[in-house]
């Protein structure tokens, strides 16, 4: 049993009965310690991913090819900051402070989605990220919008609405490049080739190798397995690639008439674990950029605090 002995078995049973009835758990409700811990881990990783996820695309804001693309990209990156804040706020309802969570991210203790440890080498990467990475996030988050923890589920509902814009702007950009000059076409095909496999890895290890999944599924946080979600993403994406005449870098990709699924080749899990463990192409660069931003923002936080203190003092003086 993974439930620690500190949890009263009768309360755990009552809690699991609530989950089985499809009830939504709210912050002040009793919950097993392990449920709380798993949610803090999962939700904070998710929030960190949104925040770190601003970096690869933020890299291209100043070099967007037109004002229209620049406005879209700015708005998308700002949304990612908002998504991070929605989820941090949801995580705080479990009794942790955002300050602690941010500290764990900056110290390297906390994880975030490995996809953001890959570099954005060309402008086409920005479009492909919107199409693949946000597309994969929508598949995952649509499932999480039905999670058993209310604040998490509500954050996901908001996020899914906004991610649709992210995906559409990405796919539009990809489609534009795909019907552009031979150079643009080659550039976008190269971006597709580099982002396809890491995007499939976003759904996490195969269910049989995912220790946290079983527990999260039992408690209704996750309603579907990693493999089912990954298959759904592949099924949605293959026709989108065909529509813009781009190929996906997988010779084993083929349609199975019987199952209605696009079968795909073997994922390189060694690469996945290398990146998770901190040795991806950009892990160090991403954390260094977050630390720098946090430290360079210190004076803004101090100034806001000083201003508020001054206002309080003058209110007291006037009274």
């Amino acid at each position: 049993m993974q439930t620690p002995h500190t949890d009263d078995p009768a309360r755990v049973a009552a809690f699991e009965a609530r989950i089985a009835r499809g009830e939504v758990i709210e912050p002040k409700d009793w919950m097993p310690d392990r449920y709380r811990k798993q949610l803090v881990r999962m939700m904070s990783q998710h929030a960190h991913s949104e925040i770190v996820g601003m970096l690869p695309e933020g890299n291209w804001i100043t070099r967007a090819p037109s004002l229209r693309r620049k406005m879209s990209l700015l708005a998308k990156v700002q949304d990612e900051a908002g998504h991070g804040l929605y989820i941090y706020c949801g995580t705080e309802t479990l009794g942790v402070d955002r300050h602690e969570l941010v500290g764990d991210l900056l110290s390297g203790k906390a994880k975030y989605s490995s996809i953001f440890n890959y570099p954005t080498l060309t402008w086409a990467d920005v479009g492909v990220i919107g199409w693949f990475v946000d597309g994969a996030a929508i598949v995952n988050q649509t499932m999480l919008a039905k999670a058993s923890y209310g604040p998490y589920a509500r954050a996901m509902v908001r996020i899914c609405k906004e991610e649709n814009f992210h995906k559409r702007q990405g796919y539009e950009s990809v489609a534009t490049l795909a019907r552009g000059t031979p150079g643009q076409r080659a550039m976008v095909q190269d971006a597709v080739n580099r982002w396809w496999w890491p995007s499939l890895m976003m759904f996490g290890p195969n269910d049989k190798d995912s220790p946290n999944s079983a527990e999260l599924t039992r408690w209704g946080v996750k309603k579907k397995g990693n493999d089912e979600l990954r298959q759904r993403f592949v099924n949605l994406t293959v026709p989108q690639a065909q529509a813009v005449h781009l190929t996906l870098p997988d010779p084993a990709l083929k349609y199975n008439e019987a199952s209605g699924n696009w079968e795909f080749g073997q994922i390189d899990w060694d690469e996945f674990w290398t990146v998770v463990k901190g040795d991806g192409p950009c892990n160090r660069e991403r954390l260094a950029a977050r630390r720098k931003a946090h430290e360079e923002g210190a004076w803004v936080r101090a100034a806001a605090e000083a201003h508020a203190a001054k206002q309080r003092a003058s209110t007291v003086a006037a009274a």
């Binding site: 705080e92 402070d97 955002r98 300050h99 941010v102 500290g103 900056l106 946090h294 430290e295 923002g297 210190a298 004076w299 936080r301 101090a302 605090e305 000083a306 203190a309």
Partner: peptide, 18 residues
Amino acid sequence: MSQGKPPDGTPDSQWPLW
């Protein structure tokens, strides 16, 4: 996190919750 602590010693990214 010792960086940027405001003078009253509250954690730097915390501030009151609304």
